[in-house]
Simulated scan of single mutants.
Amino acid sequence: MSSSTLPKPQMHGLLAKHLRIHIVGAFVMALGVADSYKFGVAEPRKKAYADFYRHYDSMKDFEEMGRAGIFQSAK
Score class of each variant (00 low, 15 high):
Ile23Thr: 14
Val24Cys: 04
Arg67Gln: 06
Lys8Glu: 11
Gly40Pro: 02
Val28Asp: 02
Pro44Asp: 05
Lys46Val: 13
Lys46Gln: 12
Val41Gly: 01
Phe52Asp: 05
Ile70Met: 10
Ala68Phe: 04
Ile21Lys: 07
Phe62His: 12
Lys8Thr: 15
Ser58Gln: 06
Glu63Asp: 07
Arg54Leu: 01
Gly13Ser: 00
Tyr49Trp: 10
Met11Ala: 13
Pro9Ile: 01
Leu6Met: 10
His18Gln: 11
Phe52Ala: 10
Val41Cys: 01
Gly66Val: 15
Glu64Leu: 12
Lys60Ala: 14
Leu14Pro: 03
Asp57Phe: 00
Ile70Thr: 13
His12Asn: 05
Lys17Gln: 06
Gly69Phe: 01
Asp35Gln: 06
Met65Asn: 12
Ile21Ala: 05
Gly66Met: 14
Asp61His: 15
Ser2Glu: 05
Tyr49Asp: 09
Gln10Tyr: 02
Leu6Cys: 06
His18Lys: 14
Val33Gly: 03
Pro7Lys: 05
Asp57Cys: 00
Met1Asn: 10
Leu19His: 11
Ala48Val: 04
Asp51Tyr: 02
Ser4Glu: 14
Gly25Trp: 03
Met29Trp: 03
Glu63Trp: 04
Arg67Glu: 12
Lys75Val: 12
Glu63Thr: 07
Arg20Ile: 00
Ser2Pro: 11
Pro9Met: 02
Glu64Asp: 14
Val33Cys: 03
Leu6Pro: 00
Glu64Ala: 14
Gly25Arg: 06
Leu31Ala: 04
Ser4Gln: 13
Ala26Leu: 06
Leu31Ser: 04
Ala16Arg: 08
Ala48Gly: 08
Arg67Pro: 01
His22Glu: 09
Tyr53Ala: 04
Lys60Gln: 09
Leu14Lys: 13
Tyr53Lys: 02
Pro9Arg: 10
Ala16His: 02
Gln10Glu: 14
Ala16Tyr: 00
Ala42Val: 08
Ala16Ile: 00
Val24Ile: 10
Gly66Ile: 15
Met29Pro: 00
Ile21Phe: 04
Gly25Val: 01
Ala30Glu: 03
Ser2Ala: 08
Ser73Glu: 12
